[in-house]
């Protein structure tokens, strides 16, 4: 349970913000020249060994095992099995819905928290981070308890012909839970830093609420929003524990890509498991590259603000 995968950068609100700030931008390496060469050599060697062994080697291994039998076999593993095809399809359906839900919430929450002062605001900010400290398995469990056997909500919905658990709606709910804070905590610090001056000016000139949002607020927060969406999506597509619990793991019906990887592994179909895992790995790498590209734009002073101290 915890501050979880892919902690997004909140503009210094919390350590996740700190986490993402790349340390590489130190103005000058202060210790250079003062540390003896053997200290430097040993520490650089250790670092390369640690990062290479812990992260580099597994990355190489994923692609090596996925491509071990050649490109043809790789493609066959990904496309020939209908259950694997369905898992890819399901992930591509579930993740965008969960991300969309959290985008709508993130914008609403950021607007309220960054622009207004009201009783309970601090509690609200804390509650938004709550899902990060809940184990993914518990996140799945809570929806099983709500919609499972003998649960009032589940019985009522089933009586009306809706199946939530062991079906895509349950996958969406569990995914939305574990990715809940991502968009909101990207937007809140950015909106706070920009300040309300432009919006107040537009308002005094007679702009409507929607005009205000589309013409001023959205353009100001677009990079932060994109950043939040990318991090949220990566986590949504890769989520395992929460969807494992709510899916019932019905092959060809409720298996997402990560769940399919596990099933293939259990069936000793290692090449296919690694094939699918390599697609998820590519997704992670693309996410990190996008993150590196967007980060400088987040630090740009957004629009020239009036009366910024």
């Amino acid at each position: 349970m915890a501050a979880d995968t892919l902690l997004p950068a909140g503009g210094g609100r919390e350590p996740p913000g700190v986490l993402i700030e790349q340390g590489a931008h130190a103005p000058r390496p202060p210790g250079r020249g003062t540390d003896p060469w053997y200290v430097r050599a040993v520490l650089v060697g250790l670092t390369v060994l640690i990062v290479g062994g812990l992260v580099g080697l597994p990355l190489v291994a994923v692609f090596h095992h996925a491509l071990a039998n050649g490109l043809g076999a790789y493609w066959h593993n990904l496309t020939a099995d209908p259950d694997t095809r369905h898992a890819i399809f399901l992930t591509l359906m579930v993740a965008p819905v969960a991300v969309g839900l959290n985008v709508a919430f993130g914008i609403a929450a950021a607007w309220v928290i960054a622009r207004f002062r009201f009783p309970g605001r601090g509690v609200l900010v804390t509650l938004i981070d709550l899902p990060f400290s809940v184990s993914p398995v518990v996140a799945g469990l809570v929806f099983v308890l709500l919609f499972g056997l003998n649960a009032p909500a589940g019985e009522w919905l089933r009586a009306h012909g809706y199946q939530v658990l062991f079906a895509p709606p349950g996958l969406v709910l569990a995914t939305a839970f574990v990715t809940f804070p991502f968009v909101a905590r990207e937007l809140i610090p950015v909106l706070e830093a920009i300040g309300p001056e432009e919006e107040l000016a537009a308002r005094s000139l007679g702009a409507s609420g929607w005009e205000l949002f589309w013409r001023i607020t959205l353009p100001n927060i677009k990079w932060a929003l994109l950043y939040g969406v990318i991090l949220c999506n990566a986590r949504a597509m890769g989520e395992f524990g929460a969807v494992y619990v709510v899916s019932g793991r019905i092959g060809g019906r409720t298996d997402t890509m990560p769940l399919r990887v596990e099933k293939l592994f259990q069936e000793y179909n290692t090449p296919a498991a690694f094939g699918l895992a390599s697609v998820l790995t590519l997704l992670a790498l693309v996410t990190l590259i996008a993150k590196v590209l967007i980060e400088p734009r987040l630090r740009e002073k957004a629009p020239p603000s009036i009366g910024e101290p």
């Binding site: 892919l6 990560p258 790995t281 992670a284 990190l288």
Partner: peptide, 10 residues
């Protein structure tokens, strides 16, 4: 940062 982005199943 890779461990933050890589799905845990992988």
């Amino acid at each position: 940062d890779v461990p933050l982005a890589l799905p845990t199943a992988v």
